[in-house]
């Protein structure tokens, strides 16, 4: 068994009639535009390798056209790959027969959609029950479980409404409840909150984080919004033009962007909120200064320092000091990094 719940290995997706024969060309470095111009095929994904850890929120982000929605649909094989492997719990999804795939979708991985994908002719409760109906759960039991999850996402009392009678945020809660009700380990969320307005989106992110604290599912979350990625992601992978550019913790993405594309993405981020004391801490042996927990954000730490009139922090982890951070360290980390080559970074806009 590998350390990952889901492992994507050298996955290629090329759209077009002769996709298989294009793989070698693409593997040898043929670009997306050239492939389209000279061979009339569209490059979806190029040699993507990602390990997705269990029980965590894995964000895959990129701009539109970067292949992120294509990628997530490979995991439950709503899209057939050109070549590659997707190993879930040691089994290759791409080698599964039709019935196995169906079972995997029923019991192994459920999905939440950008435009909700609710069934307009079914009530909220019936929508919540859909996955269970398909699994063959008896209707009384299905109703009980669906009601439980609808209640968890704050929709009790709305069971008999139709989706069209609910606001967007509430519709997506139904989508979330429907996905959770199947009890699948893996939750695939395709731009699940992108269609919602900012306040509702923040609300939904909060609901998701609360649920995750308790459920510890393996969540693959697609988004184009870096703030969202940084808020909910335990791990972030960045795609561009079907290629994986960088993968790592939110802090490493912000602190060490792999290239100008990522740097461009991160430059407007509120770094004080993303970076934690842990990332800035350097061991000095001294115990001076305000003792603060290592996973506090810089923002929170600064607030505490101002209130208590300190300009030095001793970073504590499990009640032991692991290093220190000064106010000037923090200011330095928050300041926007100089772009190494501003010409190149502008090219991505």
């Amino acid at each position: 068994m590998s350390e990952y719940k889901i492992e994507i290995k050298s996955l290629y997706k090329i759209f077009g009639p002769n996709d298989k024969s294009m793989v070698d060309l693409v593997a040898n470095g043929l670009g997306k535009q050239d492939l389209l111009d000279h061979h009339k095929h569209v490059l979806g994904l190029r040699d993507v390798n990602i390990g997705i850890s269990a029980n965590s929120i894995n964000v895959i982000m990129g701009l539109s056209g970067s292949g992120k929605s294509t990628l997530i649909r490979h995991i439950n094989r709503l899209i057939e790959p050109t070549v590659g492997q997707i190993i879930v719990d040691g089994k290759d999804v791409l080698a599964m027969a039709k019935e196995q795939i169906r079972d995997f979708r029923r019991f192994g991985a459920s999905m939440v959609f950008q435009k909700f994908g609710l069934m307009p002719h079914r009530t909220v409760l019936e929508n919540g029950m859909y996955g269970l109906n398909i699994q063959g759960v008896a209707s009384g039991e299905a109703e009980k479980r669906a009601k439980h999850w609808l209640n968890r996402v704050g929709l009790s009392g709305f069971e008999d409404r139709f989706p069209a009678q609910l606001s967007g945020g509430m519709q997506q809660r139904v989508g979330l409840a429907r996905a959770l009700a199947t009890d699948a380990d893996i939750l695939l969320m395709d731009e699940a909150f992108s269609a919602l307005d900012p306040l509702i989106r923040a609300d939904m992110q909060g609901i998701l984080l609360d649920l995750q604290n308790e459920l510890h599912k393996t969540i693959v979350f697609i988004t184009h919004d870096l703030d969202e990625a940084l808020r909910i992601g335990d791990d972030i992978a960045i795609l561009r033009d079907g290629e994986l550019i960088q993968k790592g913790s939110p802090q490493s993405i912000v602190l060490k962007p792999a290239d100008d594309y990522v740097a461009d993405f991160t430059k407007d981020v509120n770094r004080a909120r993303v970076l934690t004391l842990n990332t800035l801490s350097h061991a000095t042996g001294s115990k001076e200064g305000l003792p603060l927990n290592s996973d506090l954000s810089i923002e929170q730490a600064m607030q505490a320092m101002i209130e208590s009139d300190h300009n030095l922090v001793t970073v504590m982890k499990e009640n032991k000091p692991i290093g220190q951070v000064s106010l000037s360290d923090m200011v330095g980390a928050i300041a926007k990094p100089k772009t190494t080559d501003s010409g190149a970074s502008n090219a991505y806009r």
Partner: peptide
């Protein structure tokens, strides 16, 4: 989209 959702939940 609705059909895709039906597929994603493993409908035959």
């Amino acid at each position: 989209e609705i059909l895709e959702a039906a597929d994603a939940f493993g409908s035959n």
